[in-house]
Design a protein around this nucleic acid. Structure first.
Lengths: 273, 273
DNA sequence: CTGATATCCTTATGCTGTAAAGAGATAGCT
DNA sequence: AGCTATCTCTTTACAGCATAAGGATATCAG
């Protein structure tokens, strides 16, 4: 299930996201000094999510990591939903903030996409934060600004760029998602990827003996190796520890990106650039 | 949180998916006749998910819709995870199974993408079924076969097509996702999209008065034409009831698809087709 | 010192998936 | 016909979840 953004007090959420919260009068209030902070909680929550996946992210788990009960967190954060928002925005801060355009926009965009790929693999849970409504934290805008800086190199106008932005982001997200979730599932369930796959495909042969007749093109896709393009033949990737699936997904990513870049070039040509 | 596929007895799951389950000896066993069936349960579950979203899909809710308790379902389905797998595969059966290639592959692919878009909007919860490991039900292969039938029209070889498949599917999924989840969130929380958005963007102005200096390109993106951020739409969106966001996302979808199609054409040209 | 306010804990409520055990129906077998 | 194995479905129970409510305790301004 997707975690929806918190819908509590909008004002407080935004203040937390943009860090305009505390420092009105820092230490004049009575009561014990806070032993925790929003930052500590967000960090602990990210650590939990990184290590054990979003499905293991509970208020108890976060509290435990800080030596507190679950309820102690509610002093700092209105609800779990808001905490997830904060985690999301904090994680985005890791992304590079600018790309050198000297080698051309194609190279820059390729590096941007690669960094995104690596980022989502580092924090797979980010893909599970609902995109229904933007979190609207500062780092989301920073990320947007970074991408726009790269796209400016194409010389395309705002209306075109506006559409490209979504396409590019969703492309990266979409192509990493299977890889990220497969990793999560493998660690969460303890079943290695290869094993799971073997079991299933053995079952398919048994349960659908007429597979080749029912799905001829799927079989064709799997068997035919040589490309009329003359691009590199598919090797079994011998000295590669990662699951086969990941290597394959990465090729999909690279090839898909090429298609996108070519498409952008076509748009530029059409715009007379 | 993403719902992971059930990891119970692989054999039984596959049998359920491919419907090779029951009819060994249909009516020789003692005991009361089953009042339910896997199909009825899957239908009821889909109805719940369609109406109230994946987060409201509980075994109790499904059972209630059938006049049974939650536990009654476990006679037919091993776990909630398996049920979700079955829902997913059943839903996919709705998709068209072939596209006329007479008007060219571009037209066919455009129609394919449009049907996918509509499908995901009809069943937003499908986007929340984990893609970590393929469900491997029959209709997933049918869908693949359909797409491959369209892509065959390009004349490209298997290795290239193999990569295009993922790119296209993720593109469609990625671009509908915000729209689908926004609809879900709006109905689930009862907060209309416009209202939520207004509250947040008003807060941004207050919390980041220096927004224009910090994010000049975001502002540029928003001022030249309609904006996903802040200001009202400059572009006319007459007699359209849907939230502004949806219309905008649809444009992103169309424009992104054009970029993809242009990119595919470039790949064909490079292959000498 | 007093009263107000802060952090943090304990307890409790209503969800969730599902394990365990039992009630009642129905078939084949004797 | 009666017995018994087997099936469906219910009840009850349990652990885990987010979080509401209330209480204990520490710290400030006066």
């Amino acid at each position: 299930m997707v975690v929806f953004a918190g819908q509590g007090d909008v004002q407080r959420t935004m203040a937390l996201l943009w860090r305009t919260a505390g420092p009105g009068d820092p230490r004049t209030a009575p009561g014990p000094k806070p032993a925790l902070s929003v930052d500590m909680i967000v960090d602990a929550a990210i650590a939990v999510a990184d290590a054990e996946g979003m499905s293991s992210l509970s208020m108890r788990a976060v509290g435990e990591r800080l030596g507190r009960t679950a309820m102690a967190l509610y002093t700092y954060v209105p609800s779990k939903g808001e905490l997830v928002d904060l985690m999301y925005d904090r994680a985005l801060a890791e992304l590079p903030r600018g790309y050198d355009g000297e080698a051309g926009w194609r190279a820059a965009l390729t590096r941007w996409a690669g960094d995104g790929w690596a980022f989502y693999l580092r924090h797979p849970w980010v893909l599970q934060v609902s995109q229904a409504r933007p979190v609207l934290g500062p780092n989301e805008y920073v990320m947007m600004e970074t991408l726009l800086g790269v796209l400016r190199g194409t010389g395309l106008g705002a209306p075109v760029v506006r559409r490209l932005v979504g396409t590019l982001i969703y492309f990266v997200r979409g192509t990493v998602q299977p890889v990220a979730e497969a990793r999560q599932a493998a660690t969460a369930t303890g079943v290695p990827d290869q094993e799971w796959w073997d079991g299933r495909s053995a079952q398919i042969a048994q349960v659908a003996p007429d597979f080749a007749e029912r799905f001829p093109m799927v079989v064709w896709l799997g068997t035919e190796g040589a490309s009329p393009l003359g691009d590199e033949a598919d090797e079994p990737c011998p000295d590669d520890d990662r699951p086969y699936m990941e290597a394959e997904a990465e090729k999909t990513f690279q090839a898909g990106l090429t298609v996108l870049l070519d498409g952008i070039e076509a748009a530029m040509r059409r715009a007379g650039l």
